[in-house]
Write a protein that binds this DNA or RNA. Structure first.
Lengths: 338, 338
DNA sequence: CTGTTAGCGCCTTCAC
DNA sequence: GTGAAGGCGCTAACAG
């Protein structure tokens, strides 16, 4: 059995031989066909087709000193909004012929560091960091690797960011509720270390008295887990206050959906007995009745994040984009009960 | 300005020079330190640390003829169950120092083909195909690239698969409902081309008469969109039948949550007026009250999918694993109303 | 328009 | 235990 070990894949040289040309000609047929004669081109293409030749991307990468990829560091894959964002980023990456590396961090710093090292090892073009706590790990990324954060502060770093206009969003929600006659508006804050959750809470605290002239009540602002499950806890907490609110604003849509389910389960009518609003913009597919919420345009956000890494005009300097949000009136808000 | 262009990253040769050794020694210090003397090792490691040397993964890949990656082709990223699976696969990949490529297919065949080509170009170890319609595209993947499908039939292909035991699951649900006294049990089927949806519908149709001796009613089996939004449509459809069911079994949890929300919104009490069951096992975090459902163990499924690609013992031949499921009794089911 | 040559950065024989 | 040489598959110079 002196049989040669069969090669798994053919290389450019084999194809060249089969087509009776040189390897560089094969390369040109693939990468700049206009610089080859029609005859040779067709001949080479025929061989490529016949043997299903697929150029080895790893060799290309080595030569180009880039894996042509960008990474997304995502901390909470159970948050449907981040998945929407991820999907859009995936679309953009595909459109630009870039590979998107989805790195599930799960609030594990060791894992985060390992992914960072790996990104360096493959010379990723850049990293998009979605949410999650602030860390110092990123200080060591080389300047050639672009860094962009979404809803995350990295003050000490020369790092671009994209953020939704949380203040504007909360303003829109509070304004709308006040116009419906609500005066007792609670805010169910997230208790995690998310930047967005904090910003929204602060916006509420700032606006409620200063702009809307409503008394600020300690007990109306309370931290909860960001999950659907704790919706009932939220409703129970607020409804058992001596003077319960007529509307609950939630730090995000996930919580709002939980509150909606909890309220309905307790027999409260929404919005007759209680108005509920969220924040994110998941409403179309994720709840019924449709949530009144503030929509952060995930397509626009994804585009900005992406451009901050790939667009030469934008990567030059640090950008801090704040994205406008819009009010989406759904069926979970109504005039306050007399 | 005769300044040399500064190199972005140091190579193994630069490190070797700085440590006064040869490149091969640096390589050994990194890859098989036991074959180097302690002195040299420490010296080299010091230089590596000092300059934050990160070996170029692309060169390694080229040499090893493998990108050390596996790909997941996912068709519906809005399905929370698939995200659970994705997250677990991501964890496993990290554990095994493999890169996980998340390919969002979105039912686009052209995109699917391009991702397939890319996977070949980087010599991916294998592809995990989650759900989605059956296609012929996969016929051309080379035999060295392992292929595993989840909840998807690829009869014509020599391809391993992992499937939940849908029949068992539907049996558990129907059995439980019957024990609660239900005789009028509807099945809200998905209308998409998902294998799981079909299998569950067939299981219902098969068991309802044959095992439970209940009359099969055409109008009790109806196809709907797999979204939360259409929950109200489902409830409306069934409740306006001349003889409405007392329980609705849904093709998956997403639909069941929609039905739950729709029912509550219409003022129906769950489970007093209507029992609702799902299928998947999202219940812990995704709905309130907790859904009665059938749980497919996503950790076990992820493990099997993964092993079918990476475990030499399993990749040898084609496996068709059927995973047992368990009944999770929640709060959306109760005895039938007298 | 096409072929020859050299090298991307690393790893692994093979000598020493 | 360590160094020198060659090659993984491709592309971009440079000649012809």
């Amino acid at each position: 059995m002196n049989q040669k070990k069969q090669k798994e894949y053919l290389g450019i040289r084999e194809i060249a031989k089969l087509a009776h040309v040189s390897p560089s000609t094969v390369s040109r047929v693939i990468n700049s066909p206009e610089r080859t004669s029609v005859e040779v081109r067709e001949q080479v293409n025929a061989v490529i087709q016949k043997y299903h030749y697929v150029p080895n991307q790893m060799a290309k990468n080595l030569f180009s000193k880039s894996s042509n990829s960008i990474a997304v560091f995502i901390h909470d894959m159970t948050n449907a909004y981040f998945i929407l964002l991820l999907k859009e980023l995936s679309r953009l990456a595909f459109e630009h012929k870039l590979t998107l590396l989805t790195c599930n961090i799960d609030n594990n710093h060791i894992q985060e560091q390992e992914y960072l090292d790996y990104c360096q090892a493959i010379r990723t073009k850049g990293i998009i960091v979605v949410d999650g706590p602030l860390t110092e790990l990123y200080k060591r990324v080389p300047p050639s690797m672009k860094l962009v954060s979404f809803d995350r502060t990295m003050d000490s770093l020369k790092c671009s960011s994209v953020t939704a206009n949380h203040l504007q969003g909360i303003d829109l929600l509070l304004g709308y509720l006040v116009r419906l006659g609500h005066r007792k508006i609670a805010f169910a804050a997230g208790n995690n270390n998310s930047f967005a959750a904090k910003a929204r809470r602060q916006a509420y605290q700032q606006l409620i008295g200063w702009k809307y002239n409503l008394p600020y009540r300690e007990e109306y602002v309370h931290g909860f887990e960001c999950s659907i499950r704790c919706g009932l806890d939220i409703v129970n907490y607020y409804m058992s206050l001596p003077d319960p609110p007529t509307a609950i604003a939630c730090a995000n849509d996930t919580m709002a959906i939980g509150v909606l389910m909890g309220a309905q389960h307790l027999g409260l009518r929404v919005p007759e007995d209680l108005s509920i609003v969220g924040f994110d913009g998941l409403n179309e597919n994720f709840s019924f009745p449709r949530l009144t919420t503030v929509k952060q345009d995930y397509k626009q956000i994804a585009r900005l994040l992406f451009d901050n890494i790939t667009d030469p005009k934008r990567t030059e300097e640090v950008h801090h984009d704040v994205v406008d949000v819009t009010l989406c009136i759904g069926q979970t808000t109504g005039p306050v009960k007399k």
